[in-house]
Design a binder for these strands. Structure first.
Length: 235
DNA sequence: AAACAGTTCAACCGCCCCGGG
DNA sequence: GCCCGGGGCGGTTGAACTGTT
């Protein structure tokens, strides 16, 4: 059945869009198209490939299912551990990029998969419900809760490192502050200029590594030496 | 075997951000 | 600076699946 679908965001109106589960033949068309033309310009994919799907639907299908190196199946203990730690770190109030940030640390996993995993397995494990049948009728909260108090230590890091860390500092939330306070770590020496030079470090990671012992240990594994000084305290 | 309840996860929606004109 | 469109995000939905009675 083909129905008219109102798409979110910048989706163009007018063309009837197919919806629902993707068929193997649709996957094949999309995969062939992306392999031939590359990712991007999703809005034109349906017109050029012949798929009667919206651009967003194509993008999501590719990103979450068809992309090479997608890892499926059960989460390993290490993956679960990392999800828990990072979720604790970024909390529920960080704003954009939370799930993708976590997924970025899990090779082959997508933000959607991490999100689903958290909502089903982890919330349940933590006794917070999580069944999709127990849905709240509460009004959707705004994505951002506005400017939050900034941890002075965080600000000092931002001032002395790079723009990306500054941006992270600007986004600091109470969740971050609580996480930092719970971690028994404090910063002794500000980040050296080279912190963002490390190839594996994304914009947020140097910032996060300050507060998460696990990520910090990973930093040591990858980089061989700490990108910044860190002291363990109050233990 | 059938009916119902509970769970999972792919897909969609609405909103926001950002870059280009 | 403003507008528009594409891309990306988190939240939510509902079909499909699994377990229980």
């Amino acid at each position: 059945m083909v129905v008219e679908v109102k798409q979110g965001g910048g989706e163009k109106k007018g063309q009837a869009k197919k919806r629902g589960l993707w068929k193997p033949e649709e996957d094949l068309v999309l995969r062939n198209y992306v392999e031939a033309h590359g990712e991007g310009n999703w809005a034109t994919v349906s017109a050029k490939s012949g798929l009667k799907r919206g651009g967003k639907s194509c993008r999501l299908r590719w990103k979450n299912y068809l992309r090479p190196n997608i890892k499926r199946g059960e989460m390993s203990e290490q993956e679960q551990d990392l999800i828990v730690r990072m979720h604790k770190l970024v909390g529920n109030r960080l704003g954009n990029g939370r799930w993708s940030l976590i997924a970025g640390r899990l090779p082959g996993r997508t933000d959607n998969e991490v999100k689903n995993y958290w909502n089903t397995h982890m919330n349940k494990a933590l006794g917070r419900g999580g069944s999709s049948k127990k849905r709240s009728n509460a009004k959707k909260l705004p994505r951002s809760n506005g400017p939050m108090a900034i941890n002075p230590a965080v600000v000092s890091i931002g001032e002395q490192s790079n723009q990306a860390v500054m941006a992270a500092a600007a986004d600091a939330t109470n969740a971050w502050i609580e996480a930092a306070q719970n971690m028994n770590y404090y910063i002794d020496t500000p980040v050296p200029a080279a912190a963002n030079d490390m190839a594996f470090v994304s914009d947020m990671e140097p910032f996060m590594a300050y507060f998460d012992p696990f990520l910090f240990s990973q930093t040591l594994e990858f980089g061989g030496e700490a990108p910044f000084a860190i002291n363990q305290a109050f233990i």
